[in-house]
Design a protein around this nucleic acid. Structure first.
Lengths: 124, 124
DNA sequence: CGCTTATATAAGCGACCGCTGATATCGTAG
DNA sequence: CTACGATATCAGCGGTCGCTTATATAAGCG
């Protein structure tokens, strides 16, 4: 399934938004989604499966619960795909220039300020 | 139709990639897509319609041809949606910081260097 | 041990999406 | 005016996706 197909579903997008604020158990996700979309637990579980199998989320068992977290790599792929269109709203850069600028920005900000540092969950 | 649904289709993504290099006639798009995906002219026309109706492309008649061009606004919406996940690969920024940094970056680059300036096509 | 809670899987069904083939519209050339 | 080329639209069909109900797996708890 392609990256954009995964994000094509509003429920999956919402789940990712929820996970963006920190890891959540399947049940916690269920509760919110059920309230907002009115769909069943298996439906949510199937969406979580899609997110899992396509690398958008990682799972960590904790007792009987399963804690889900965002895995950002596929989202970064989208960001990269968007690069070729960035010059349409940052007109003075071609694709290479944008890449350099993004790198420079990151470096500049990394060495100056800092905020809360949640490390990006990498799975081996 | 939602932004991500539009990009869910590989043909539509490819068409946008083609249009990213400059405007193309429906026929020109057809030719490439037909070669790459082996689908018919009506199929391509329907995809162009989806792109048009969802604001991803603009059309300009030139004689009997119709010239298509990228309209970047929906793509920017995706970029904005991605903002909430950017801290996963630029860990030292929260969402607000990222927004500020992006604005600052743009301003900084706008007043310093410049490259070839294809103006972003705005439709009134 | 059973019983409950938490989550995942299976089977089946309806809706939607994208394709094709046929046709309509529109511009242009002879 | 007619014919042709370029593009859009229509009708219909098949496949896929997401939902539901029912069930399986597995952990916690008395």
């Amino acid at each position: 399934m392609h990256v954009f197909d995964v994000l094509g579903d509003p429920v999956r997008r919402r789940i990712l938004e929820l996970l963006a604020d920190g890891e959540l158990s399947s049940g916690a996700v269920c509760e919110v989604i059920r309230e907002e979309f009115g769909i069943s637990q298996p439906a949510v579980s199937q969406h979580l499966k899609v997110l899992r199998e396509n690398g958008f989320a990682t799972v960590r068992p904790e007792g009987a619960r399963r804690l889900y977290a965002v895995n950002s790599e596929p989202l970064r792929d989208i960001d990269v795909w968007l690069d070729r269109f960035r010059r349409f709203w940052t007109p003075h850069l071609d694709a290479l220039g944008t890449e350099l600028a993004r790198g420079k920005r990151e470096r500049r900000l990394r060495e100056s300020g800092d905020a809360e540092g949640r490390p990006p969950e990498e799975q081996p």
